[in-house]
């Protein structure tokens, strides 16, 4: 076990609630994910007009990164390692709807570009000017052991100074994100057990 890696900060975002470092920082009942994510964007006074062009999965990942990558948390080389179960299915369905009818076949390029789950990583990289290691994995559920190993190895092999990582899932009008920043600073040790504990809280 490596004792000098820490979960420097973390957040949990579900349909109605945001918890940042163990404290509830936002609660809002919205009709759908799109409305909820927009309300979060407005509430935290984020200024980034391209946000509105993103799909729900990218918006969710983007907002998590906004909460965690503050000026004091930022380092020059932050890797991004995300995972989820639904991949980009939420947007894939929208794309499919636009091509179902051959008589009314007008696929939207703006939707099509989000039919990959890792596009959100690109959006975060553009926003924070990151040119770092990144990966997006698909699991049935959040795999803390895998994440722990992968995040540790990135830092251990000097591929990154810190890692923004976690679970970001959107499907059937529900969203579920658990994102955290792994670095050499912090109070919560970066262990599989702690990741599971924080995810389940």
């Amino acid at each position: 076990m490596n004792k000098n890696r820490y979960i420097q900060s973390y957040c949990r975002i579900t349909n109605n609630v945001i918890i940042l470092n163990g404290k509830e920082v936002f609660r809002e009942s919205s009709e759908d994910i799109k409305s909820f994510l927009k309300t979060v964007y407005k509430n935290f006074e984020i200024k980034y007009s391209k946000f509105f062009k993103m799909d729900n999965l990218s918006k969710l990942a983007f907002l998590g990164a906004e909460l965690l990558l503050t000026d004091e948390n930022k380092s020059s080389n932050i890797a991004l390692v995300f995972s989820n179960a639904a991949s980009s299915l939420d947007t894939d369905r929208k794309h499919q709807e636009s091509i179902n009818d051959i008589e009314n076949y007008f696929p939207s390029p703006a939707i099509f570009v989000y039919t990959l789950p890792n596009i959100g990583i690109g959006e975060i990289s553009i926003r924070h000017q990151l040119k770092s290691e990144n990966a997006f994995f698909i699991f049935e559920k959040y795999n803390a052991a895998f994440h722990h190993t992968y995040e540790n190895s990135l830092i251990q092999m000097n591929k990154a100074n810190s890692v923004l990582a976690g679970w970001v899932n959107v499907d059937k009008n529900t969203c579920d994100a658990f994102l955290y920043l792994v670095s050499k600073k912090g109070k919560i040790e970066h262990t599989t057990e702690n990741l599971i504990k924080l995810y389940n809280n």
Binding site: K53, F106, P107, P109, V113
Partner: peptide, 13 residues
């Protein structure tokens, strides 16, 4: 550039 493609689709649709 994606917006440009979207405008092309809009003209057609």
């Amino acid at each position: 550039s994606i917006d440009a493609l979207e405008l092309i689709v809009m003209l057609d649709k």
